[in-house]
Amino acid sequence: MGFIRNRKSLTGLIILGFFVLIAIIGPWIAPYDPDALGDATLAPPSPEHWLGTTQVGQDILSQLLVGTRGVLVVGFVSGAIATFLAVIVGVTAGYVGGLTDEILSALANIFLVIPALPLIIIITSQLPSAGEFTTAAVISITAWAWGSRIMRAQTLSLRNRDFIQASRANGESLWRIVTVEILPNLTAIIASSFVGTVTFAILSEITLAFIGVASISDWNWGTILFWAQSNQALARGAWWWFVPAGLCIALVGMALALINFGIDEYVSPRLRTTAARSRDLKRLGITPRVGFTPVARGHLAPPKPRRRPKPHEPVPAIDTSFAMIEEEANR
């Protein structure tokens, strides 16, 4: 599959896969109980405590390992719920149209202008116990609106395409038109919307923990940052307390962004061929430049194609095997 071969999405998937693994096995491989107090207080990294300790002697590596699960569970659960809501609301609004569309669009617009974080803070602080799933639910009901607008727009455009009209004229049922004819055309948008929502949910959850709204008895990366902040780790030079957690957040965010780039390139043949082409060009010793189009000159043998396209695979819109290439001004 082209998506896996894409270097950006591959990198993203590897990083994300690493964190998923940690999320699964983290609590078992953690060397200490993350809550257990120790004798070494605010100790820098050492063979006993690889990432040092807090001011009450808790092992930071164990906190990170245990906390990964909460971060990813909340991220993926709220990503899944929000994407599901977005697809249901967006596709219904786009396909049915009329008054239904007006009502659902108004609903999405209301959720869009509600400032998400304050609302999450209010709801979570009112609930008796703000556990992981409560947080996930609250994040997902504020995060679906944007995706639903994209789904609606795309469905609206698909609905009037000839192939949907042809399916209707052939007597296809409404349910099948939506699930078999329209949804496969939305796969990439749904995937990218899901990945975007996961990013948003992870950042929201960490923010909630960091400002101390979510319950601080559950460990996640935000909780670590919350304790580091409240004990003035920065002022005391205890970099090991907040840098690893921050790095983990940045890495997961980067992995998700890379996956999204990969999806974009996979979906848009234009971006896909541009990326593939720049690799081919670099192999021929030419630096690709924006705004210039390489032009094929047919008097030299083309480089050997890396692989033959399989019969079922969509053929890229532009042939990437070149003859002699020269750069020429495009505009």
């Binding site: 192939f163 042809a166 052939n170 007597g171």
Partner: peptide
Amino acid sequence: TKRVQMIFQDPFASLNP
């Protein structure tokens, strides 16, 4: 539709890609 069928103008748009 079993009795009355239609052929569309644009063959590039009338089949689901």
